[in-house]
């Protein structure tokens, strides 16, 4: 203890204090990093297997129809002109699952009454955004939907429709 009080040791003490403070900050940063890594949303990539969903053959879907695919969490909408759109079933207002109403020919959200047309466009508030889309492709008359990626969109555009 005595030697530590001598004047020569002052720089050493200051150095050690900085060292401890620095190391302490490193420990805090490391801990925060570990916690952040654990809190990171689990990635889908970890799930093996194809994310391509086979909906069926093109002529199973009559023009002007909407078909639900609960297993893929989407609706396949065949427009009057024969174009295809895959709409995610999650309401863009607050995430409820929207059912298709055959009688009203629109999606009606049970939670807060948002409505969407067969292209996913908002017909009635409170939702502000069209339903999310999934990519559709038609190969040899088979309709396939890519479940790996949901596309958010601000508005409907004709280019979003897949022509068979």
């Amino acid at each position: 203890m005595k030697t530590a009080e001598t004047p020569q040791s002052k720089p050493r003490r200051r150095f050690l204090r900085w060292l401890w403070t620095g190391l302490g900050l490193v420990v805090i940063a490391e801990t925060a990093w570990v916690i952040a890594a654990f809190l990171r949303p689990r990635s889908k990539a970890a799930k093996a297997g194809s994310s391509l969903f086979t909906a069926g053959t093109i002529d199973e879907f009559a023009p002007g129809s909407v078909t639900a695919f609960p297993a893929g969490k989407f609706y396949l909408s065949r427009l009057d002109d024969g174009g295809l759109l895959a709409l995610h079933r999650e309401c863009t207002h607050l995430g409820c699952t929207v059912p298709w109403s055959e009688s009203e020919q629109r999606f009606v959200c049970p939670c807060h009454a948002s409505t969407f047309d067969s292209r996913g466009r908002v017909l009635g508030a409170p939702a502000t955004r069209p339903l999310d889309m999934l990519a559709v492709r038609v190969e040899n008359g088979i309709v396939k939907v890519d479940l790996s990626h949901r596309t958010r969109r601000v508005a409907y555009h004709a280019s979003q429709v897949t022509k068979p």
Binding site: K73, R89, T97, V98, P99, C111, H112
Partner: peptide, 22 residues
């Protein structure tokens, strides 16, 4: 997950914010 109840509300202590959202 496939069927939402009508209406769907937040817990009572957060439902005031949901009202603001309306």
């Amino acid at each position: 997950p496939g069927m939402s109840p009508n209406p769907a509300k937040a817990p009572w202590y957060f439902v005031g914010f949901q009202e603001l959202l309306v």
